[in-house]
Design a protein around this nucleic acid. Structure first.
Length: 547
RNA sequence: GGCCUUGUGGUCAAGCGGUUAAGACGGAGCCCUCUCAAGGCUCAAUCCCGGGUUCGAUUCCCGGCAGGGUCACCA
């Protein structure tokens, strides 16, 4: 058979270059030894999720700790999956979490010498190589219809054989020249398949950068490399792109592990040097007692927007991811509390081999601690950013009075005081924590543990002596005074020694005051709360709290 | 079902032939304390099962079992 002629008929493009021209167009990168080139290669299908961020963080850390490049490539070979604005969204999302690309689609960089970074725009490179494979007898046209393929698959399933297009099932593999041209003449659509040279009897060990040594079976599937629309499948595009873009380390989800044999054969057949591979395990979650992969559709916490709208501090999310990416990260951080997480020596070898359960408690803990590192001013900026995007109009009005908010923050953050509080887990919660400082969001629950007369006497008694100029100890002395005057123990020790002889202790008196002023039995330092509210409002609330 | 892969407390996990089997989150309790938060201290809780190999297995081998992934003209 005249393969050259066949290739011309199948791929009649006249804009293809000789293969070595492509090699020349994408010369090796000039990087230090040991520098890794990694990439994030999403399909522009939907929005980026936590799992993407997880592996992107690994990519980014490895590239940037080795002096390499982290780039963005868009795998848009499947038109059906394209969503407008997805690319910008990916970039924006990663940037929000502090990850930046050095190069790639929609990235403004002088490093962009390996593009185009959209696969649709790279059609001619793929087609040139497919054509070459046809000439070399390593690829062939297949005219099988979807129905035929389905029928074969059913038959294979029934006979408990391996499904797919291989061996005797590869009907079009040995089509005669006449049959091929007849099919073309008849206008039958076709795909191009790899004429696999592999044999599943052959197994060998492959070293994965994350999983370690794994057993791989040779591929014998005549996989589709060029779809009937003339665009390559993922497998083929991966081989071509990662070769020409000089990716040194391919980090991707473990769902790709099973197609690794295909990629291995493709690289071999194309004569390309194989990159290193690292297959990450996926984030899991327990659902109804079953452990399963986090799913975009079922789990809102997988969406990065979820973290933004809930007001998680972005760095906290990143640090949480770091702890599951490299479990020694936490230990390192304890030893280097001041250091930036970027100073941590990220190691791909330390990445977990099995899927981690997503742990919201852990995230909350990290987030709380991160937020507690911020100054009142920084906290204000962060909360204000959240309020502007996700808060209510009332929240925005409140935050317009920055001076007042800062006062509250100083209390919450314990700034100036000796101990730092860790009240705020995320912005949304932080903003709600401040509600009682504003009359329009003050929603008291007047649930006292004492009778009407006692409560009112305490409230009146304290209102009569309250002086906003008192310092904390003078203030507390007055609370004690009110306690003593109403049958409560002024000193905790007295009360503990003799609980029967008192109605309660100062703590109980403070609780009554707290309920009236802050609306709940729990709040930070009441004296300061009153100071922030101001005398007029404090007295008004003491009065309104009476029953 | 075939193939690949994983299996240390509730969770994330150190460990790499001999350990009182780290640590963190979560839980319980105590202390501190005007309550809460934070902090300090203490406690409970783990090597999937069965065979080997070995003087000795959580660590090595084999077999189960359980979990995960995958079997497209989607990536």
């Amino acid at each position: 058979m005249d393969l050259k002629k066949l290739a011309e008929v199948l791929i009649p493009d006249n804009d293809l270059l000789p293969l070595d021209e492509y090699e020349k167009a994408y010369p090796a990168r000039e990087l230090e030894k040991g520098a890794e080139v990694t990439r994030l290669a999403p399909s522009p299908t939907g929005f980026i999720h936590l799992g993407n961020l997880y592996s992107a963080l690994a990519d980014e850390r490895i590239a940037h700790t080795t002096g390499g490049i982290f780039y963005l490539r868009i795998e848009d070979t499947d038109l059906k999956r394209k969503v407008d604005g997805a690319v910008e969204s990916v970039i924006r999302s990663l940037k929000y979490f502090g990850l930046n690309f050095d190069e790639g689609a929609e990235i403004d960089s002088p490093l962009n010498k390996y593009g185009p970074y959209y696969q649709r725009q790279r059609a001619s490179i793929y087609r040139a190589y497919v054509k070459d494979l046809i000439v070399r007898g390593l690829a062939y046209p297949c005219f099988c219809t979807e129905d035929e393929l389905n029928a074969v698959r059913e038959e294979q399933t029934e006979r408990k054989e391996i499904t797919g297009y291989y061996g005797k099932y590869a009907k079009c593999r040995n089509l005669s020249e006449e049959e091929i041209y007849a099919n073309i003449k008849a206008g039958k659509p076709f795909v191009i398949r790899l004429k696999s040279q592999g044999n599943t009897e052959n197994k060998f060990t492959f070293r994965d950068a994350i999983k370690g040594d794994i057993t791989v079976t040779e591929n014998d599937q005549d996989v589709v490399i060029l779809k009937s629309d003339g665009i390559p499948t993922y497998h083929f595009a991966h081989a071509i792109d990662d070769h020409f873009m000089h990716t040194t380390l391919v980090i991707r989800g473990e769902e790709w592990l099973s197609s690794l044999p295909i990629h291995l054969e493709l690289f071999k057949v194309l004569g390309f040097q194989l990159p290193k591979y690292g297959h990450t395990c996926s984030l899991m979650k327990v659902d109804n007692g079953v452990k399963r992969k986090l799913s975009k559709r079922k789990d809102p916490e997988l969406s990065l927007d979820y973290y933004r709208s809930a007001g998680y501090y972005p760095k906290a999310v990143v640090k949480y991811l770091m702890t599951i990416l490299n479990s020694n990260f936490e230990e390192w951080e304890r030893k280097n509390p001041q250091a930036d997480y970027r100073d941590f020596k990220f190691s791909i070898g330390k990445m977990g081999k099995s899927g981690a359960l997503f742990d919201i408690d852990k995230l909350n803990d990290i987030s709380k601690a991160e937020l507690a590192n911020l100054s009142a001013e920084e906290t204000y900026d962060f909360l204000n950013g959240w309020v502007n995007e996700f808060g209510s109009d009332t929240d925005r009005q409140h935050f317009a009075d920055k001076e007042y908010i800062i006062k509250i923050l100083n209390l919450i953050c314990g700034i100036g005081g000796k101990k730092r509080r860790k009240d705020i887990v995320r912005a949304e919660m932080g903003v709600r924590l401040m509600d009682y400082f504003f009359d329009d969001t003050f929603k008291p629950a007047y649930e006292y543990r004492y009778d009407k007369d006692t409560v009112n006497a305490v409230l009146d008694g304290f209102a009569a002596v309250y002086d906003e100029n008192d310092d904390n100890s003078a203030w507390f002395a007055k609370v004690k005074g009110v306690a003593a005057a109403n049958g409560f123990a002024a000193e905790m020790s007295e009360y503990k020694a003799n609980p029967e002889s008192f109605k309660g202790s100062v703590a109980d008196v403070a609780e009554i005051l707290r309920i009236a002023v802050a609306g709940s039995p729990n709040s930070p330092d009441l004296c300061t709360v009153m100071g922030i509210l101001g005398k007029a409002r404090t007295l008004a609330r003491l009065n309104a709290g009476k029953i």
